[in-house]
Computed example of a mutant assay.
Amino acid sequence: MNFYDRRKWVWNNVQQSNIKRVTAKRATSRRRFTYTYRFRTPEESGGGLHDVCKPFFLSTLGYDQKSDSAIMRCLQSAPSDSLNPNSDQRGKHVPNNKLDQIKIFAHIFRYNPSVHHYRREHAPNRLYLPSEITIKDMHEHYVQNIEKISIESYGKCVVAKNISFTVLGSEECEECKKFHEHKKTHENGSDIKDCEQCLNHDHHIKRRDETRIAYKSDVEKSLLDETYFYSSADLQKVIMLPGMPGEKTSAFTRRIVAFNETFASLGQTKTKVTALWHEAISGRNASDIASTFWNFFKQHLRDKKHIVIAQLRT
Rank of each mutant, 00 (worst) to 15 (best):
R90P: 06
G91P: 02
K92A: 06
K92S: 07
H93W: 11
V94H: 13
V94S: 08
V94G: 00
V94C: 10
P95H: 06
P95E: 08
N97H: 10
N97S: 07
K98T: 11
K98V: 12
L99M: 05
L99G: 00
L99D: 03
D100S: 01
D100K: 00
Q101P: 04
I102G: 15
K103W: 07
K103N: 06
I104G: 01
I104C: 06
F105S: 14
A106V: 07
A106K: 12
A106I: 15
H107F: 08
I108V: 04
I108T: 00
I108K: 02
F109W: 11
R110K: 14
Y111S: 04
Y111K: 01
N112T: 10
P113F: 02
P113L: 03
P113I: 04
S114Q: 14
S114C: 14
V115E: 08
V115T: 09
V115C: 01
H116D: 03
H116Y: 03
H117Y: 10
R119N: 13
R119Y: 15
R120D: 01
R120H: 05
A123K: 09
A123Q: 15
P124V: 01
P124W: 04
P124N: 06
N125C: 11
N125A: 11
N125V: 04
R126A: 14
L127C: 04
L127H: 04
Y128N: 11
P130H: 03
P130Y: 07
S131V: 12
E132W: 08
E132M: 12
I133G: 02
T134F: 06
T134W: 07
K136D: 11
D137I: 15
E140Q: 15
E140V: 07
E140N: 10
E140I: 11
V143M: 07
V143S: 01
Q144G: 04
Q144K: 14
N145H: 09
N145W: 04
E147Y: 11
E147V: 03
K148P: 03
K148H: 11
K148C: 13
I149C: 04
I149H: 07
I149A: 06
S150N: 01
S150P: 02
I151D: 03
I151W: 12
I151G: 03
Y154M: 04
Y154R: 00
G155S: 13
C157I: 02
C157Q: 08
V159E: 06
V159P: 06
A160K: 14
K161P: 01
N162W: 00
S164R: 10
S164I: 00
F165P: 00
F165Q: 02
F165V: 03
F165R: 02
T166G: 08
T166S: 12
T166H: 10
T166R: 09
V167L: 12
L168P: 05
S170E: 15
E171N: 10
E172N: 14
C173Q: 07
C176L: 05
K178E: 13
